[in-house]
């Protein structure tokens, strides 16, 4: 795994999140931080769910499909599997452009 400093507080300047990627874009996950997301879940729950679904530091992601309307939700490739999620929650996944 590449050296990301603090994934939990990884809001570095210019950092992008999965929720803003467009169809066809690829990226690498650099951190999971749910503080920017409004959810009905208890604290820390969304982060753990994301990790359990494979969205963890170092995973490779690619946006495969966008639904209608509003290009939401999205279907993404996460390493070997395909995952559907909404853009709102995808904001919790911080990404860097794939090398």
């Amino acid at each position: 795994m590449s050296g990301q400093s603090f994934p939990e507080t990884g809001q570095r300047p210019g950092g992008r999140h999965l929720g803003e990627l467009r169809k066809g874009q690829r990226a690498r996950v650099t951190g999971v931080d749910e503080t920017a997301v409004v959810t009905s879940l208890p604290e820390g729950e969304l982060e753990r769910r994301m990790i359990e679904m494979g969205l963890v530091e170092g995973s490779h992601v690619e946006v495969l499909h966008e639904a209608f309307p509003g290009r939401d939700p999205i279907a993404i490739r996460v390493n070997e599997h395909t995952l559907a999620l909404r853009r709102a929650e995808a904001r919790a996944v911080l990404v860097a452009p794939a090398a």
């Binding site: 959810t39 009905s40 395909t82």
Partner: peptide
């Protein structure tokens, strides 16, 4: 009432 549960669903081959 209440926010919707997040969607996190695998799409099988």
């Amino acid at each position: 009432k209440g926010a919707r549960e997040p969607l996190l669903m695998e799409l099988p081959a």
